[in-house]
Measured scan of single mutants.
Amino acid sequence: VQTVGQWLESIGLPQYENHLMANGFDNVQFMGSNVMEDQDLLEIGILNSGHRQRILQAIQLL
């Protein structure tokens, strides 16, 4: 089972590990259960829309 940090590294966005972990997104399986939306990522400080889309697309593959 991948950690959130390993998963972010695999999609090329390791800089957001602290954003996700500090806001309770600390379990890759949980994130894959379709609980995260674009607005959630924006609210936790991921401002780059391309990065948000990449995260959301990768979540669909979990």
Rank of each mutant, 00 (worst) to 15 (best):
M21P: 03
N18P: 11
L61H: 14
Q15T: 00
Y16S: 03
V28C: 07
H19V: 15
M21G: 05
V1A: 06
V35A: 14
D26P: 07
A22E: 12
I59R: 08
S10D: 09
N18G: 12
G24E: 03
G12I: 00
M36R: 12
Q57D: 14
S49G: 11
P14T: 06
L41D: 02
L20K: 01
N48I: 05
E37A: 11
I11Q: 00
F25Y: 13
Q2K: 14
H51S: 02
A58G: 12
R52P: 02
N27Y: 06
M36S: 10
L56Y: 06
F30L: 15
W7A: 02
Q15D: 04
G24M: 03
G50V: 09
Q53C: 09
N34D: 09
G24F: 04
H19F: 08
I59H: 14
E17R: 08
S33M: 11
E9F: 07
D40A: 08
Q2F: 12
Q2P: 12
E9L: 10
A22C: 08
I46A: 00
N27T: 14
I11K: 00
Q15K: 03
I59F: 12
Q53M: 11
L61M: 11
I55A: 03
M36F: 11
D38I: 00
S49K: 14
I55S: 01
H19E: 10
F25A: 05
I59V: 14
L62V: 11
Q29E: 15
L8Y: 00
S33N: 13
R54S: 06
R54W: 03
G45V: 03
Q2E: 09
D26W: 08
A22H: 10
S10L: 08
P14H: 06
I59N: 06
M36W: 11
I44E: 01
V4N: 00
S49T: 11
G45H: 04
D40H: 09
M21Q: 04
V35I: 15
D26N: 12
N27C: 10
N23P: 04
V4T: 06
A22G: 08
L20N: 01
N34C: 15
R54G: 03
L47C: 11
R54H: 06
I46E: 03
N34K: 14
V28R: 05
L62M: 07
A58I: 03
G45I: 02
S10F: 06
G24Q: 04
L8F: 03
L20E: 00
Q53N: 13
D40C: 08
E17A: 10
I46S: 04
N48M: 04
P14C: 04
I46Y: 02
N27D: 13
V4C: 05
V1N: 09
L13F: 05
M31G: 07
G32L: 14
N48C: 07
L8C: 02
L61G: 12
G12S: 04
E37N: 14
S49Q: 11
L56M: 12
H19M: 15
D40T: 14
G5V: 08
F30C: 15
E43G: 10
Q39W: 07
D26T: 14
W7Q: 02
Q29N: 13
A22S: 13
V28S: 06
L56N: 04
M21A: 09
Y16D: 01
V28W: 09
I46D: 00
L47H: 14
Q39M: 09
M31T: 08
Q2W: 10
T3S: 14
I44N: 03
M31K: 06
R52V: 00
I55Q: 00
Q2A: 08
I46T: 01
N23H: 11
Q15A: 03
Q53P: 00
I44C: 11
G12N: 05
Q6D: 15
H19W: 05
P14I: 06
L13K: 03
Q15M: 07
N34R: 15
L13Y: 01
G12A: 04
E17W: 04
E17C: 09
P14K: 10
H51K: 02
L13N: 03
H19D: 10
M31E: 07
N48T: 05
G32D: 12
S49N: 08
M36Y: 11
L47K: 13
L47W: 08
L47E: 15
G32E: 13
Y16T: 00
V28A: 06
M21K: 13
G45S: 03
Q29W: 15
G5I: 08
L62R: 04
